[in-house]
Amino acid sequence: MTGKFDDLLAANEEYARTFPYSDLTGQAARGLAMVTCMDSRIDPLGLLGLKAGDAKIIRNAGARVTDDVLRTLVLAVYLLGVNRVLVMPHTDCRMSKSTDDDVHQLISDQYGVDTRSLEFKTVPDQDAALRHDLVRIRTSPFLPQDLVVGGAIYDVHTGRLHPVEM
């Protein structure tokens, strides 16, 4: 793994010298799971005033509640102390600027790769997609009916959350 990752391995050595989290457990200390996008402009703990160990962070392209996210939430709720879930997509998301067909075509044209067997779950209407995903969590037969579920859109240009009421 050396060579192209030397900068990361060196940074990890420095980080490990003063590693402050060895006493944390796998439990979500604040009972929170957050589903958010993989966008590197999002600091999920920092934007909510949280610290390491407070929450379970689940990230994917577009902050979509997929089958794998539901599987992860079931584990987080029953095994890791989660009692509330925040679904948080963001503004200026590449997934909200294209359709699945657009993405398939772009990848095919630019890289010669046929991705049509994949569903990218693009988000032409972010508000509707977020509401759909909140309902998906709330109606899951695998999650407790009293699980607290909320949604908000994070503005990557201001750092503010805009709650979505259901």
Rank of each mutant, 00 (worst) to 15 (best):
K4D: 11
F5P: 00
D7V: 09
D7G: 01
L8H: 09
L8Y: 14
L8S: 14
L9Q: 13
A10E: 15
A11Y: 03
Y15N: 10
L24F: 09
T25H: 12
T25V: 05
T25S: 15
A28M: 08
R30H: 13
R30A: 14
R30S: 13
M34R: 11
T36Y: 08
M38P: 07
M38T: 09
D39S: 02
S40F: 08
D43P: 02
L47E: 12
G49W: 10
G49Y: 08
D54K: 07
I57M: 03
A61M: 09
G62Y: 01
G62T: 01
V65Q: 01
D68A: 05
L70I: 12
V74D: 06
L75V: 13
L79F: 07
L79Y: 10
L80V: 01
V82I: 02
N83Y: 11
P89K: 04
H90I: 04
H90V: 05
C93G: 10
C93W: 04
C93T: 04
R94Q: 12
M95H: 03
K97I: 04
S98D: 11
T99Q: 04
T99S: 14
T99G: 09
D100F: 00
D102L: 09
V103W: 06
H104C: 11
S108L: 15
S108N: 13
Y111Q: 12
R116C: 06
L118T: 04
L118C: 05
E119A: 13
T122C: 13
T122L: 11
V123E: 07
P124L: 05
D125P: 08
Q126K: 10
D127T: 15
A129Y: 00
R131M: 03
R131T: 05
V135L: 10
V135Q: 14
R138W: 01
R138A: 10
T139C: 04
T139N: 11
T139H: 08
P144E: 06
V148A: 12
V149T: 06
G150N: 02
G150L: 01
G151S: 05
Y154W: 07
V156A: 04
V156I: 10
H157E: 11
T158G: 08
G159V: 04
R160W: 00
H162D: 07
E165S: 14
